[in-house]
């Protein structure tokens, strides 16, 4: 009998709204059902809301991306594109990138960014920070 997995029953990664973008922080381990749920949640959200121009998928915590996860992530990016939103993959770990290209997967159709700041800049989303005197 396999040991029980701690993530059983946990809610899927939430989709957050940042300006005109959707943002999702992918957890460290992603079972197939979870990555499919992510894809479906993105599709449903984009179908429901207008004006979303970007989708940021932060994978900096993801320690493993195999062929299935990669394919579904790619499909998620395509879904976003079909609704007029640009998808950007952020923070892929070096070891994971190495393994992916060795698997022959380059996610060529998905944009990538090294960090959140660059992804936001690329999607032209400005987060205005206020200092204590209220100046932007």
């Amino acid at each position: 009998m396999n040991p029980p997995h701690p993530r059983d029953g946990a809610p899927p990664a939430p989709l957050m709204k940042l300006g005109h973008c959707l943002f999702v922080l992918v957890p460290g381990a992603l079972r197939d059902t979870a990555v499919r749920d992510l894809h479906d949640a993105v599709a449903a959200r984009l179908a429901k809301e207008d004006g979303i121009r970007g989708l940021i998928i932060d994978v900096s915590a993801l320690g493993l991306v195999d062929s299935y996860t990669a394919r579904v992530l790619e499909q998620t990016a395509h879904v976003a594109r079909s609704f007029g939103a640009r998808a950007v993959l952020v923070g892929l770990q070096p070891e994971v990138a190495t393994t992916l290209v060795e698997l022959g997967i380059d996610l060529g159709s998905v944009e990538t960014a090294l960090n959140l700041e660059r992804a936001l800049a690329r999607l032209k989303l400005r987060i205005v920070s206020e200092d204590p005197d209220g100046r932007p």
């Binding site: 197939d32 320690g63 493993l64 195999d66 070096p94 070891e95 994971v96 190495t98 393994t99 698997l103």
Partner: peptide, 16 residues
């Protein structure tokens, strides 16, 4: 580390 990820990914593919 890179070889660990290779091994774990391969196991994942076979298990799936």
């Amino acid at each position: 580390p890179t070889d660990c990820v290779r091994v774990v990914t391969a196991v994942s593919e076979l298990a799936r």
